[in-house]
Nucleic acid binder design. Sequence first.
DNA 1: AGAGTGGGCCTTTTT
DNA 2: GGCCCACTCT
Length: 678
Amino acid sequence: MSTVILHRRPAKDLKIDYAKELNAEQFVVVENGDGHVLVLAGAGSGKTRTIVYRVAWLLEHGISPDRILLVTFTNKAAREMLTRIQERLGGVPSPIWGGTFHHVANRILRRYADRVGRTPSFSILDQEDSRSLINACIADLNIDTKQRRFPTANVLKNLISFSRNTRQDIADIAVEKLPNAHAIVDQVVGVARRYAERKAKQNLMDFDDLLVLMVELLANHADVRTKLQEQFQYVLVDEFQDTNSLQGELVRNLASKHGNLLVVGDDSQSIYAFRGADISNILQFPKTFPETKQFRLESNYRSTPQILKLANAVIRHNLEQFPKELHAMRPAGDLPQLIPCRDDGQEATFIAQRILELQTNGTAFREMAVLVRAISHTQALEFELAQRDIPYIVRGGLRFFERAHIKDVLAYVKFIANPADEVAWLRATTLHVGVGPKTAGELFNRVQSLGSDTDLKTINFVSLVDKRGMKGIAMFQAVIRKMLDTGVMDEKKEKVVYLPQELIRVVATGEYIDYLRTQYPDADERLQDLEQLALFASKYKSLSSFLSDVSLQEAFSVGAVSSENDDAIVLSTIHQAKGLEWEAVFVPRLVEGSFPNGRATEERNGIEEERRLFYVATTRAKTHLALSYPLVINPTGAMLLTRPSRFLDEIPSNALDRVELQEEGLGNWDGSERIIQI
DNA sequence: AGAGTGGGCCTTTTT
DNA sequence: GGCCCACTCT
């Protein structure tokens, strides 16, 4: 292990007075962040602040920005941190390597794609793309999906993904997770293999490939490994509790030359086990690196003591965790409320009224959030908010880049970027009348067999299909030709380059408009989305960086594109609320089956993860917290009686303010309840 | 045979 | 509200 000696400037040169701007716990970390460092940071303890100041400290001590790797859970978090650092230091000359694991891996893999069996123009599959490719593989292998209740592409995708992220054998995972596994395990393995082959052949990567191939790149190519290990003098990882085996391996590897690996996390907030997150990364860290310095951030600046008391009371029921105690630094506030409601409609009414009440008392809409276990739980509330003209933004669920029309247009663009991409081809061609999966697949194979060096412009697609598909394919080809016409030679006269914005324009101003109008009643709104897409694309000069960002940025959700600064309530899944905070937080639908989620309940350690989710949700609140549940829900038509969430039983009764809505009798609570007219 | 359409059914979380 | 499947049309 090599030791790095910093060239420390005298303290008077520093722009930031670290000791003054940080509390003692945080300052110790910033000052002693060299070597292997584990920071156990409770909710609201200034984790982000600590990382920001640590990076600023490194920069102020002469570390070059490009030698710092800052891995965060979302790209948004990385952007925010880098912005804050720049503000504090008045600009940073060259950029820091910051972003998600997938983002960083993508950036490196573009450079070394040939080492992992791809070319630099590889495309990235999102979950829907993977699903359709897996479906194609199932069809390829002539598997009878009906006879033995073969798992759907979605289930298979999750199995394959889980096995790769946890680095376990797909057959073992299948046996563990599928009821009838033994009869079909060979077929499952076959699909997984075929899927991998087709991705390689078509120059595609799914999200997991970014991590797997990155780890393989380091393992198998000593020159690349040496270069990267040399480069990254300091590696910092946020939300370490949610990293999986591959990600743990990746940072350990990258940091091994200089030995400066600082990880920050909170085991109580680990909520991604379903995607292979391995809590032992954080629990075993001190054992892996015996010289690890351990620090704790236990002062909570975010929430009132009442809110913390509630959160702590519930999380205490989890057995597997680091012992820790969060101290509230804020003065006392109101008790969190518990509101039983007749049904989800009344629950929505209550939340809407309470939102207006809070706003009247001076809390801005943007300072309020409704956090749900599943995005579908916002339905009744969305209806209510719309009726009352309360502005809201939905985070979670379908993202902007996953909407059908956006993906349609991007399919054309992806095909231009990577003509071997069959997924993109299938999507774009089958939009046309008379062209289905069969015609599209056969045509694709014919086009590919003409040779990869054949110019797309000169191939006549139409001559390769029979009558029925001709008209549609002719239209498709016309669009492709127009797109190819926008290409220009790059400065070095080596290859043709395309501007993403121009490619989008060609598609979105052509026959696709007619398709939209016949297909969707809200075609006009969708056309506006396409304009937003073109606007977003105008920031990019390179096709591959545009397409990478489209795939890897969690980005804005639907509707949030232009209203980033608007004053609106946030409706979000708890997963997407990670790391964020609001003055007022509502957690509705606290019934068994919804939260804790019914399926999670059956999984191993599922309840503990649900409880951590509850902990994350409640600790987002600064001042006001309202928990509610409907006594009846109406999912498909049949009324369903509910049972209140078990987490509510874990809260001491003196930690809650039980509210009775006075619209009709809601059962007999004791006389201590407050009554609210609704 | 393959494309298109209408009815029944379920709905976790994400890079 | 979206997805899968079965049925009908070309």
